[in-house]
Write a protein that binds this DNA or RNA. Structure first.
Lengths: 342, 342
DNA sequence: TATGCATGCGCAAACGTTTGCGCATCTATA
DNA sequence: TATAGATGCGCAAACGTTTGCGCATGCATA
């Protein structure tokens, strides 16, 4: 199953076999007869190039890496899929890694991928550190960050227009008449969290509604954080009539907490969320959400990466924004008049 | 960044550098001083082994392949995740491929992965053909099929106990009093579809309820198929009071179709489904479902694969079953008395 | 009969490792 | 002062490719 074997059978040198199978027979003035012989020999033993040897020789692995915090999260899965499909179309294969939302794992995985000579990397960072990514980029590795970017630094990033979504959601809640609003945040310090939070706060403020620290809880983009944060907030501030969950994992947690506290959504409590996926429509209640265009995030990341691999220079705008669509569903209504009784 | 460079700096031969960095200094009687020199040199230039070269030399790529029909489907994503985590723990990396539910793509992708010298493969087949997989296995590639297996052949397979789940769901529907039941099937001919269908049919039959071809519709495990099938069935047989969807994608389609036909679930129509994921709880209505243990499927597949890679012989039972848990929720109630009016 | 130019193909190095074998040098023994 | 056994390390082949260079052969031209 090696070129050598093919060459032996065809009665030619390895070099000739290589050239023929690379389709360079013409360019190297190899006779029709020889081409046929080599082709047949290859066919006969079912010859396939060793990608390994080829990569070693050529320095091109045709491999890209994808690192996400949790593959089983449909949000990241959808992103991974777009990248995988794009990669396949370009002749690349994808090495997938799951950082388990862990900074140290991510570091290790990125290094591991680099050891495997990936030609490009798409990563959704788990943490707040970007030095390992910056190092990779400085070492010449084409790199695209997706979703969870960094406010500073120089990493090319594709992410949603969080401010736009948060503002729009704020409008929805304000318009419905809510004045006591709680925020279930994700991981503070992340671009995603901070942008959403800041824009939401600003939008409320411009309508005269103040969002103090006492109205904000949560520390991760997870269901457990959402649940705990919602419980905390609802207990500490019963006058809250609406919650803004910064992700739909968090929203799930909020739904659980609300159920546990006997508050029915949306009758006793409105809920708006930044959303990952299109399941919201069939949820109970259907969630009002700022819906991210997840496939577009993945596609854009892939496009940017492959453009760079094709030699296209990096775009000047570091933060590439994908717009979100606010969809109003049943989880937001006017605040219940009996809110004080709770 | 090569061994050669390290050797130069340390003033030793490449061989010595290799042995030191492999931790074989002791076994090869290399002096403390030399070991230190090499180690420092490596550290100094940030040396990392080329996985490529190592693989080529050793014949071990430490790579496994995972092929699924749709990465963005949370079901497959969850499986992919378990395999990825297991692989990482064993020092393997994962090459991920998405066959887009397409047989030909799958073939191509499997071949591509084999060209990359994967040491093992987990695949969830998109189609009804298994010859390419059998070929891979016959060629000595450790292979585990997950979820969608084949009734015949010799491929080691991890899949749910579909018959168990289907039977249990049949009991639930029968107990609720349904006698006119429709089935929204997935892809006929697949083990998953046929086992679920057959067991369901048998369970109904043992209670005197006949399930004819006219009560079965659908041709794929997709939302569109579910929607179309549900619409067809409900229109052709208005007396149907309950639907059994063979996957939750199909169930989503059924919900859509029901909504379009003005039938409210569960008031006018009960719905039970074979489920992929734990979102069902928050759906509207919460779905009664035979819940597969998706992580267990992935874990078991990974365990079997890595056991084989570690030299453990293949288990004798070809079809490894993971049991499912039936969860009764609100989507199944007694048949509406006004069913005839519809 | 020598010279020139196509034509058709092979040699061998290189990619970065690992590893079997062997070769020096030194110390202790006879 | 030879000899043996450690001790410490290097040579070179091999993994499967790709590719620059060059070498034959054949034919037409001078």
């Amino acid at each position: 199953m090696t070129l050598k074997r093919v060459a032996e059978i065809a009665g030619v040198s390895i070099a000739t076999a290589s050239r023929v199978l690379a389709g360079k027979g013409g360019a190297h003035r190899i006779s029709e007869a020889t081409v046929a012989a080599v082709t047949q020999a290859a066919e006969k033993i079912g010859f396939r190039h060793s990608h390994l040897a080829r990569s070693l020789k050529s320095g091109q692995s045709a491999l890209i890496g994808v690192v996400v915090p949790d593959v089983s999260n449909p949000f990241f899965a959808a992103i991974a899929r777009e990248i995988t499909l794009a990669a396949e179309a370009k002749g690349y294969s994808v090495l997938l890694a799951d950082s388990r939302e862990d900074d140290a794992s991510e570091r290790r995985l990125v290094q591991q991928l680099r050891d495997r000579h990936i030609e490009g990397l798409v990563v959704c960072p788990a943490g707040l550190k970007q030095d390992h990514l910056a190092a990779a980029q400085d070492a010449g590795l084409p790199l695209v960050v997706v979703d969870r970017g960094f406010a500073d630094g120089d990493l090319l990033t594709v992410t949603s227009d969080h401010a736009q979504g948060a503002r729009a959601l704020a409008q929805v809640l304000l318009k419905a008449g809510h004045r006591h609003i709680g925020v279930l945040q994700g991981r503070p310090g992340t671009l995603v969290n901070d942008e959403r939070l800041a824009a939401f706060k600003a939008a409320l403020a411009s309508d005269g509604v103040r969002l103090t620290a006492a109205h904000i809880a949560g520390d991760a983009f997870s269901e457990v954080s959402g649940r705990r944060a919602a419980a905390t907030l609802l207990r500490a501030k019963p006058q809250i009539t609406a919650l803004f969950a910064l992700s739909n994992q968090i929203a799930l947690g909020a739904l659980r907490a609300a159920a546990e506290l006997g508050r029915v959504v949306p009758r006793d409590l409105s809920l708006a969320t930044f959303d990952d996926l299109p399941h919201a429509e069939f949820m109970n209640p259907p969630l009002t959400t700022a819906c991210q265009d997840v496939p577009a995030l993945g596609r854009q990341a892939a496009d940017l990466l492959f453009a760079r691999l094709a030699g296209v220079p990096r775009p000047r705008t570091r933060l590439q924004r994908i717009s979100v669509t606010v969809i109003e569903r049943a989880s937001v209504t006017a605040p219940s008049t009996r809110k004080a009784t709770t």
